[in-house]
Design a protein around this nucleic acid. Structure first.
Lengths: 144, 144
DNA sequence: TGTGTTTTATTGATATATCAATTATATTTG
DNA sequence: CAAATATAATTGATATATCAATAAAACACA
């Protein structure tokens, strides 16, 4: 078999893993106690406070079980509170605490800078093409 | 903050996660007992039997601890054996068993087909560009 | 209305990821 | 050579991922 480690998929995996490490390193400089995914959750809930765990899981590409445990951890850290949604008692209503809000404010510039640095020297056109190709791959393989 | 979930990085992550799921689904059709990463390890060791755990970890983008435990699992399943490397007793010498070899043979066509299906309708030129852009991102962010 | 189906979230089991500390061996270099 | 340093692998602690099974609530509709 041809070496799988030089394929396009290897490069895709490599890029996203390096980007996650890079992002985490930079987050740690201003905020030791938060992960990249936790930052994403805070960000989504800040913009869209009505999101359920299920919706967060879909947005972040996790499954329900993983999201349950991530939220659990964030509640434990005091970043979120969790209540029953009065309109649908199956759902949880998650709220960003003032601590969560402060953390989010402190890391937002870091996140924006991360993206900028990572994409330095790449034109908008190239980014568009990159996204287009990735979406084509996804369309080729998603389940019918 | 602008929505992080529509960025290029979201699309990169999405593509690799979908590809891993797709690959695993197809592997499971012929071989229930193996994961994508285990298949990669068998493949590398088959081509390059002298690879140490450290080298495997680097190739597969894992850390040493993760590799120790993956190898442990594969030895438990009878896919590999593990001995001391006589020339450097810190290292382990991993050997693909006949069972591991049979498994590898049965999944090789699946792996090749996975790549083909995922890249259908994408030209070599586009693939080259995709890889080039991903490598540029990596160069932008790797630690000095 | 009530029965079956779907949705949301949780839990348990197991595998994997990550970081720090440790052990054993090899290598470097003063 | 001996001491310091580097490397390979392991272990423990903790976080996450994944799958299957379950519970509770909501929904569909005959």
């Amino acid at each position: 078999m041809t070496m799988p480690l030089k394929t396009v998929f290897y490069n895709i995996e490599r890029a996203i893993k390096e980007y996650r490490k890079f992002s985490q390193r930079n987050l740690n400089k201003v905020q030791k106690e938060i992960t990249v995914d936790q930052a994403l959750i805070l960000n989504v809930l800040n913009d869209q406070p009505e999101r359920s765990q299920k919706e967060l899981a879909d947005l972040l590409y996790k499954d329900n079980a993983a999201m349950t445990r991530m939220v659990e951890g964030m509640v434990r850290k005091g970043l979120l509170t969790k209540d029953e949604d009065p309109s649908d008692r199956r759902k949880a209503r998650l709220t960003v605490t003032s601590k969560g809000d402060a953390v989010l404010k402190s890391i937002t510039p870091v996140i924006l800078n991360n993206r900028e640095v990572a994409l330095k020297g790449i034109t908008d056109e190239e980014i568009g093409l990159l996204v287009q190709l990735l979406q084509k791959i996804v369309r080729n393989i998603i389940q019918p």
